[in-house]
Each structure stands twice: as structure tokens, then as C-alpha cells.
Design a protein around this nucleic acid. Structure first.
Lengths: 332, 332
DNA sequence: AATAGCAACGCAAGCGGTTGCATAAATAAA
DNA sequence: TTTATTTATGCAACCGCTTGCGTTGCTATT
């Protein structure tokens, strides 16, 4: 049924290698033969077999995007799926396919990352920071990969693209100061690992020197955010502004503030990391540190392709955030 | 660097075909040779080249999941990404990879769907209902594919898996009646295409015969949901309950009701389609028609593999929904 | 003891492309 | 006109694995 390059060659009266060259735009082929070949391809509805092509060329024509999702929620992580969208776009423009894999699962003792790499299913990998561990690095090292996020393990030569969490926090804190808030707290997060660590660092750095840092970690639920907010308000010197680690946390904070009868933004200011669609629909709408996830995915994919094509060997990119000012923090 | 099946064969002192048979568990090989081969594989850190394997076997070892995302939002669609998680799990258990593709983009006039199929990059496809059109069906017909969702174009032989939207609506309406609401409105949706059509059909069917249907379509924004809710309340005979097409819509409805001073659930009942994480964090928490997206993805993937393995040729599956009763609709 | 049957493995032809090298024809340089 | 170049295409050897068929040696059958 499906025609091969030999069928095309026979119909066009040429050698398969000539057809191959026409398809790949290599060498010089006369216009005359080109046309004969195109006609034959058309007539036979020929589509090159990408598998055979990969075998011969040594390139799979696919990149792998791995995530460490342990449940469906992690998978539906807005941050990830938005980046994925951009990655797919860049890949498609390059004629590449995107294979997704969950690193959490293993087959026969070999992680899906190694599997994609060792069985030559992909030409490059986009990895989450959590998978970047010495054992893997040793195996992946000679393979083109880019980390989407900043890995905790520093290692020269590891390419990564991340949003500037420090700068984002600082941006929000400075904004809150400008709006006249003076006792700014950081609400949510696990207290300080991975990107939360960097956000808190940025929070610290932007705090005025005589202001005491107030950090209230949570387990990520709205409920605990609500509890912690309520507790914070009962402190002798309560915060008058909250920078929230994520939207779910901010949601809890807003509810606690409402129940406590505090007006936002008049009494208390609220800002949040990440501009989820939800953020503009709360009451009041939330000021948010905006992460350009499309750009993030795009940059990551581009960097990966540069590595695949050997144009570059080493680069770390930090994307700046912007602040979307909404009612929750603007009393002026 | 990377070792081949020939290297393994040479080291084990056997023929490559024997190694191949051991790897694939075919034919009868003596324990003795098996062990020699395993030892050689171990020593050389051998990993079969999946591309070569695909070429020889005629199977790509991948399935394609296509979506019709035109922007990042569609991509991050909770419904989709949760199903994707389950699909990837099933595929991984089968030793298959998952290639994602955006149908919106085209390369050289060939859609990404056709590309995946015609260039034999995948052994099967999971398609969104929107892509199921006669032109494509003709080409895809002989190829294993399953639609994730119910296609509008009926065609015998088309396999699909969908959630029972009609039943879901009916479930919610019946619940609202039981809670003593008697003027139930349907809020949101585009008025009646695709799954919205089926949800509205279920709404109609569950409505008591002497109750007039009230349908308020929106453009999907919270703002318009808010406006429409406010308008509805000013009607001579206003609704006393809203079944919302989605969470964003419900969010708007809740805000409108709050502004209008109506108590939920005392005065007005609210239920919503899809149990987003958001639904349990609103004030009050929303009663939601729950769609088991994990099951949806799992069933879809399973059905696809059955088709790939030629075990089945035709099946349509409708998954029932359940109702998660929360405060927004429970006044008893 | 002769034949049949089966287990264990080798041989080699693919699978459908790609690509270095060779060749023939056409053109340019000497 | 002869030789050096360039252009256009063919030849055939891979890429690494699978698989139908064939061979060898050994055990079971009569």
C-alpha cells in the first residue's frame, strides 16, 4: 500500500538516491529530474518513512519532555502545560516531534529518561530540576539536554532556563512598599527548597533593612493558607501585606482576610506569584508576578535545538518577570 | 560508543539473530546461551536501538495524542492534561511512547495528524472531536485511532470514549430539585454545540415537564457570567438555581449573587460541571459534576491499544459522572 | 537401526532510507 | 584539441534489528 522511495524512483526513472537528494535538498539535481520526481511522488502519494530515515541519518527527529508528575495534579500544573505548548510549537517548526514522559515511573530498572536517551528515541531532552541528580548527570552528560527550571545541583555545563524568582519577589515587595505597606510577609511554600528558596531570597533582599522578615510556610492547601493568615493577623505586630507563593495560597489568604473583616487593599495588601487565570477573577483581583511561560518554553526549546545542532555548549538563561498590578495591592 | 546487537553477539559467541530472539523472548533458546547473552549485554551496557527495531518490525512504538489548542490556555485545559497523564501511564506500561501534537499547525499543507500517520511515526492516534471531519476520516480510516470525546459527525466504526454529559446534567438537575429548588437555569456555554449541546439536552430531559427551561449562554468569561446572572435575577420569574457550564462561569455567578445580596445556598443553589480544584475553595464550596478524567484517559488509551493489537474494531464508551455535593446547593 | 520430530541456533534477505565514492556528460581552461 | 573542472546521477554499502527458512544434532518412535 504505502509507497517507498524505490517506487518513486522507478516511476520517475531514476535512482532512489536521487529521490533522496531531491527530498533533502542536497547536491545539485536538474530541474527536469526534479519535476519528474515531484510528479511521481504526487502520483503515488508518497510520504517518506520517518523511521527508516531516522535509522539511516542517526537522528530520531524527536525531543523528549520529561516531568516528574506523581499524580494528575502535577501533570495539569499550569506552569508546565503552558511551557509545553510553546515547546511543541518550536519543535513543530523545526520538524521535530515531542515525546512526553513521566520520570516517576520506571521500566525494568531504567528510568524513562534513560530509556528515551539510550534507545535513541529522542535527540535531546528537556528535564525538570528534580531529576537532575549526579547519577543521571553522569549518564546524560554527553547528550543534549536542557533543564526547565534552575537545578539545585550546580554543575558547570548544565544548561537551564528559568524565570528569575528572586527578581520576581523583589519586584512584588518593592511594589508593596511603594503602595505604603510596611510589614510585608511571605505566605506559602515549603519554607525554602528549590524555587521557593529563591523567591524567599528575593523577598529578603528587597526588604528594608530594619524590617523583620515574616515567613509563613504552608502545605500548599487553601485551608492552611487560611489558618496561617488568620494566625499572622493575631500577632502583636501583624503583617499589613502578604506576598503569596501561589494562587491557591492567595485564595486562602483572601478568605481569611474577609472573615477577619480586613479590607483588601485598604487595610491589607496582597500579591501573588504566577498570574493564573484565576487571579483576575478573585475579589478583589490579585496583583500578580507574571511569568511568561510561553517565552520560557520557547527559550528552553530553542536552547535545546542549539545544543542538538552543536551551535552552543553552555548557557544559563534567566527570564525576568513582570508585575501585573491589580486591585489587591493598589490603594493609591 | 554505543554497542549494537552485533557487538553483543560477538562477545557472547552467537549470531545476532539469537540475541534478538532472547531480547524479544521468541523461539526456544537454551538457558546456557541466554546467560551468556545477558552477561554480554550487561558488560557492554547494551540498549537496543528502538529506531532500527521499529524499522524492522514495522511498529513505531509510539502513539500520538493530538489536540486542537490554538493558544496556551487550551493547552492547559485541565480536562485534557489530566487525561494525558492517564494516557501516558497506560502507554508506558505497554512500552509505548506518547507523542503530542497540535493539530492547529500545519507543515507543508499536511496536518500534523496526517504527518504522524503517513510518516509512520505512530502506531495509533488519539484525536479530539474537533478534528474528526470527513476529509480526515477518509485518510485515517484504516489507521487505529480513538476519539477522546464524542465527535459531532456520527460515523459507524469510529471509536470514541466520552463522559456522559447528558447524564451529568440530569444528575445535577435532579439533585437541585431534591434540595427544593424549582426554577433551575443553565448558565454558560456557547448555547449548544458539541458537549454543551449534550449537557443542555440532559438539562432539558431532567427538567420537570411544567418547568420552563432557562438557558443563558455566555462567551466563557467570568464577566459575562456575572452580567447574565444579574440579568437573570431581575427577570419576573427569576431562577432559584444555576447549573453552570464550567468553573469560571460558576465563579462569575457566585460573585453576581453575592453582589445582589442573595445567599447561597439558602436563596439560590449553584452547581457546576467539572470538579476543578478551584471548586472546593470558593465561598461557598461548589457542588460539582465530577468527571473521572483519569478513567477517561485510561479507557481511551486502552481502547486504542486494543485497536492497534487488532483485538477490537469498533466500540463507543460513555463514562458516567458522579455528583460531588458541596455547600453551594445543599440547604437541607 | 532407520526415520521422524523437535529443540537450538545460524544465514541472509530484508525494513526504507542516506551518503561516500565512482562515473559520465557537459563545460571551462590551457 | 587535450586536460582539468564542474554538474548530474548511479552504485552499493551501510544504519541496527527482525524473521523466514534452513541446518545440525539429539531424543523419541516403531
Amino acid at each position: 500500500m504505502a509507497s517507498t522511495i524505490h517506487d518513486v524512483a522507478k516511476l520517475a526513472g531514476v535512482n532512489p538516491s536521487t529521490v533522496s537528494r531531491v527530498i533533502n535538498g542536497k547536491a545539485s539535481i536538474s530541474e527536469e529530474t526534479k519535476e519528474k520526481i515531484y510528479a511521481a511522488m504526487q502520483q503515488l502519494d508518497y510520504h517518506p518513512n520517518s523511521v527508516a530515515r531516522s535509522l539511516a541519518s542517526g537522528l530520531s527527529g524527536a525531543i523528549g519532555v520529561v516531568m516528574d508528575a506523581h499524580d494528575a495534579n502535577a501533570f495539569s500544573n499550569e506552569f508546565f502545560s503552558r511551557s509545553l505548548f510553546a515547546i511543541e510549537q518550536v519543535a513543530q517548526a523545526k520538524g521535530y516531534n515531542v515525546i512526553i514522559a513521566n520520570s516517576a515511573k520506571r521500566m525494568g530498572g531504567v528510568s524513562s529518561i534513560e530509556n528515551l536517551m539510550l534507545e535513541r528515541k529522542v535527540d535531546g531532552l528537556i528535564l525538570p530540576p528534580s531529576t537532575v541528580k549526579p547519577a543521571l548527570l553522569k549518564k546524560v552528560d554527553a547528550f543534549p539536554y536542557v533543564v526547565l527550571g534552575q537545578p539545585d545541583i550546580a554543575r558547570q555545563g548544565t544548561c537551564w532556563v528559568d524565570v528569575n524568582n528572586e527578581q520576581g519577589s523583589a519586584l512584588a515587595v518593592e511594589h508593596l512598599y511603594k503602595q505604603g505597606y510596611c510589614r510585608i510577609a511571605y505566605l506559602g511554600g515549603d519554607g525554602g527548597t528549590g524555587f521557593v528558596k529563591r523567591r524567599i531570597k528575593g523577598y529578603h533582599s528587597a526588604l528594608k533593612s530594619n524590617d523583620a522578615p515574616m515567613i509563613f510556610p504552608t502545605d500548599g492547601t487553601t485551608q492552611e493558607a487560611e489558618r496561617n493568615t488568620a494566625d499572622a493577623l493575631r500577632l502583636p505586630q501583624p503583617p499589613d501585606a502578604f506576598l503569596c507563593n501561589d494562587n491557591i495560597t492567595a485564595f486562602g489568604a483572601l478568605q481569611a482576610l474577609k472573615k477577619a473583616g480586613r479590607k483588601v487593599p485598604a487595610d491589607i495588601g496582597v500579591a501573588v506569584f504566577d498570574n493564573y487565570p484565576l487571579a483576575m477573577y478573585t475579589d478583589p483581583p490579585l496583583t500578580a508576578v507574571n511569568v511568561d511561560t510561553a517565552m520560557l518554553g520557547e527559550e528552553t526549546a530553542r536552547l535545546l535545538f542549539q545544543r542538538i545542532e552543536r551551535h552552543i555548549t553552555n548557557r544559563q538563561t534567566m527570564l525576568s518577570t513582570s508585575l501585573i498590578e491589580r486591585e489587591s495591592s493598589c490603594r493609591m
